[in-house]
Amino acid sequence: MRRRQTPSQTVGPFFAFGLTPGQYGYSALSSIADGTMAGPDTPGRRLRLEGRVFDAGGETVPDAMVEIWQADATGRYPDGRSNTGFAGFGRCGTGTDPEHRFVFETIRPGPPGDGQAPHLNVILFMRGMPRHAFTRIYLADEAEANASDPVLSTVPPERRGTLLAAPGSRDGVYLFDIHLRGERETVFFEP
């Protein structure tokens, strides 16, 4: 029998104790994931992603939640059976950083092997958003791989830059802001 999809509803303003309890200091529940996706023993080059979420008025959003899903350094998506300890999944709320940034400590993903450039998959949730939004983070210094990426090629050239994380001032740090509206509006996908 065909069933109809359960409608999405906003994550609301009070998700933190349920979804990101460790990050926000709630001790009654452990966290399944947080912004620290890779440890010192995780194979691969370190990648620290920092960014903020801006609403339509250009204000920083202090109660968004960002989720990341990425391949490991070899380009393989974790299936729960590997022993590397890398789950490929991270989750970070914007409510604990003084500048309301999300911060992910991870590794650079490898190319998945299907012609795609290395990238991180993103889901954005927040109060005010009745259903979540998908986007992707590509690395600006992978210009050659990005040029032939089949998903980036579906994006109008003038908007591709919104999907590129730029190297920051320190080694391994990349900056990726998400803009919900305006001239720099981030490209969102409907997969």
């Binding site: 339509a56 299936d79 789950a87 999944f89 927040m126 109060r127 089949p150 490209v187 409907e190 997969p191």
Partner: peptide
């Protein structure tokens, strides 16, 4: 739902052909 006006994307999402990135997912 007033906050949805300023907290949602302004432009339509771009259709994305599902790749390994979408067909796999976190395992908990």
């Amino acid at each position: 739902y007033h906050s949805s006006a300023s907290r949602s994307p302004g432009r339509p999402a771009i259709p994305l052909v599902q790749t390994l990135s979408e067909l796999t997912g976190p395992v908990y």
